[in-house]
Every structure is written in C-alpha cells, then in structure tokens.
Design a protein around this nucleic acid. Sequence first.
DNA 1: ATACTAACTGAAATTAATTCTCATTTAGGA
DNA 2: TCCTAAATGAGAATTAATTTCAGTTAGTAT
Lengths: 125, 125
Amino acid sequence: MKNTVQKTAVMNALMSLDHPTADEVYDCVHNEFPSISKATVYRILNRIAEEGEILHLRIPGGADRFDTTLCTHHHLQCNRCGKVCDVSVPELEGIEKRIKDENGFSIAGYRLVFSGLCSDCIFKK
Amino acid sequence: MKNTVQKTAVMNALMSLDHPTADEVYDCVHNEFPSISKATVYRILNRIAEEGEILHLRIPGGADRFDTTLCTHHHLQCNRCGKVCDVSVPELEGIEKRIKDENGFSIAGYRLVFSGLCSDCIFKK
DNA sequence: ATACTAACTGAAATTAATTCTCATTTAGGA
DNA sequence: TCCTAAATGAGAATTAATTTCAGTTAGTAT
C-alpha cells in the first residue's frame, strides 16, 4: 500500500478517536486536511482493516465503526448516547469447536454486541 | 393492530420462509398479492416485531432478517450462501449480571452472530 | 345497517451509509 | 527523471429502510 498523506491523516485520526464511525474519522481528518474526499476515508479504512491493522465493526442497526484494539474482544453499545466500549467475554472461548461438532458449521469468527445503558446514561433523567 | 389482508399475507409468508429479509418477504407476498407496497411490508414487519410476535435480526453487514423463533437464541451465518441458522449458546446465560458488575453497563439484550461456512458449503469447491 | 375515525395503505420521495465510476494525480521503483 | 500501478476527488449510484401524504379501510359506536 502506498504511503499517502491521506493515509497518514486517517491513521492519526484513528489514534485520537474511540471506536469512530467512518463519518467521525472523516470529520476529524477533514479539519486538518480539508480537501480529502469521503470516498478516500472509506477506502483507506477498508484497506487497512483488510490488512488487519484495525478491526471493522459492523454494528447492528447503525453505522460501521473501526477499532484499533486487535485482540479478541466484544462490544457494549449504549442505546442512549451511542457510545461503544470494549468488553472481553471469556465465556465464549473455544466455542467454535462445540458449534462445529454440533452444527457442522465451520466458524471463521463471531461478533457479540451487548446493548443497554452505559453507567453515565443510567443516571441521566 | 388492525387485521388487514396485507398483514395476513405477510404472516403467511413468514411461516413459509426461513429467516427472510424484508425483501424476501416482499417477493413472496407480492406473488399472491401483486398490489402490496414494499413500504407496507416493512411497516408490518416492524409492527409485529415491536409487539414481540417475531424477532427483528440486525445482521452485521447485510439486510435485516426476521425470525419466528422467539426463545433466546443466536445465529450462524454462512459467508458463502448467506443462509442463517439458529444456535443456542448456554455459555452466555446470566452474563448480564457479570457485565453490570464489572462495567456498570445495564444490558437490555445482546446479539451474537457467528460467521463461517455452513456444512453444505464446506464441501462445495 | 350506517357512520365515524383512527389506523392502515400505496406510491413516491427521502435519508443514511457505503460503494462505484472515471478522469486526474502521485508515490516510489527502474 | 521517467514510468506505471495505485491512489485520489467529486459526484453519481446503490442498497436498505423510513417518511410523507393523500386516499382507503377495519372495526367500534351509534
């Protein structure tokens, strides 16, 4: 992959944001690099996700988000403020084998998204 | 909710399909009821999902699907043919409490989608 | 049976997220 | 410096789903 100023700007934005959507990355990059195109942000995010440098999270019922934490983990999403947090779920370790044995389904990966209210929002209103 | 011919047709379609998307429901209903509008299919599906008669599944990276199985369960999705199957995951029972204690996050629900290859597709090509 | 009204419907426009097209530019190797 | 594959910008296109609005209907009240 070529090393372009656009890619560097997107990488910097990813570092400074927490589980951003593509649009949030675009807004952030667009500040210091007004000429960047939204299509370029999407392309760069997809490209580096394919290469395994970041995770591409497909959030049920919302825009995709991108995650710089690479080890296996899952997500909590707040229904009120939309914030996404990481959570580890050791209960699921090794489940691929059980599913393979019981359902004949070869698991490449899985996504677990919890939805509810974050600690901040529980106390609001 | 009113009992319309459109609703009856959508319910019948749901019975005859397995984890259909809204579009698949539309195609099926449209055969015997050519004048039905796609908006009506979406509206009826959302309405009966809100009332708890079916589940509205938000599939990461794909169209939403609808499920007539109501007890808690999760899904396997085949990356090749797109088929979705049910799977139960008792490993996660009671996990809401652990997450609440450790993260202060009050869980309303969670979705777990496994992706990989179904037994049919493993042997194709 | 009739009238009434809130709920429902069809068609088309709209929104949101993402991808695609294509002409132009650029990074980095020869 | 030249060359070319790769990357970019701008905007059109796509996809899934929702909204709008004028007209229709189910089912309750009379």
